[in-house]
Amino acid sequence: MNSLLKTVTISIIFSILITSVLAQTQGMVTVKGGVYIPLYGVDSTAVKINSFLMDVHPVSNTDFSIFIQKYPEWKRNTVKRLFADKNYLMLWETDNTLGDQLHPNAPITNVSWFAAKKYCECLGKRLPTVDEWEYAAMADEHITDARKKETYNQYILEWYEAPKSFNNTIGSTFKNYWGIYDLHGLVWEWTMDFNSVLISGESRKDVDKDSNLFCGSAAVGASDLMNYAAFMRYAFRGSVKANYAIRNLGFRCVKDIDIVP
C-alpha cells in the first residue's frame, strides 16, 4: 500500500513537473532555422537564423494584466518615465483594469520596449531580433518565404491602410506556415534590436546614409527595393524610441531552443 502511494505521489509530481515545463513553452511553435537575405543585412548578404520558438499569438491584454499584477512596478501609475512615456497603457480604465473599451483578447498595445522586454524575461523568454521576426514573418500559409508573391505583399500593404485593426482579437488573421498567427494584420511588434535600423543618425530623423552620421553607412543599402512593406517596417522601427508606447504597437516573445548535448 505504501509503495502504491509512493508511486502515485511520484507520478503526480512528475506530471506537474512536465506540465510546468510545458507551460513555459505552451503556445509556442518552432521556427526552423535557415538562411535568408533580409532587406537590410550584413553587407546585404544572407543571414543565418538558428531555430527558435515563437509565441503563436501576440501577447494579449489579459496576459499583460496578469504580468502587472505580479510586477506592480510596470503598472501605469508606477512605471518610470525613462522606461515608458505617458501613453503607456493609456486606454486602460484604471491602473489595474482594462475597462469596457479594450477587449481582453485583443493584443496589448501602448507598451514600451522596456516593458515588453521585461515581460518576456519574466517568462524565461526574450523579444525576437529584427532578423528573427522578419524571417518568421516572410512565411504565408503555405511557404516559408512568400516575399516574392504579389498577393502576399498586397495583403500586408492593405492591412497597413486598414484602420484600427488593433481592436481585433488575437488569432483573427491567418495562420502561417510555422503555425504562427497575426504577424501581419493586427498590430506592429517590438523587436529586441529595433534600434539597429540605421536610417538616420539619430533615431527620430529621416536623413538617409549620411556618412557624417554613421560609421560605415555605405553598407546599409537595401537588398530588395521591391519590398515596400518591409521598408515601412524598417522605417517605423528606425523612428521609434524605447520608451514610446504606441496604439498599434504590441509584441510577442521568442525563446532559444536548448540544444541537448
Binding site: Y40, V42, D43, L82, W113, F114, K117, M192, D193, N195, S196, V197, L198, S200, G201, E202, S203, R204, N212, L213, F214, C215, G216, S217, A219, V220, G238, K241, A242
Partner: peptide, 25 residues
Amino acid sequence: TREFAAVLAVNYKKISPMDFSHSNI
C-alpha cells in the same frame, strides 16, 4: 549595451565581423 543604446537613442548594427554602423551622438 542594446538597452543603454535605446536610452541614448543611439542605433547600431553589426555589418561585418569587424565593423558596426552606428549613430554618432
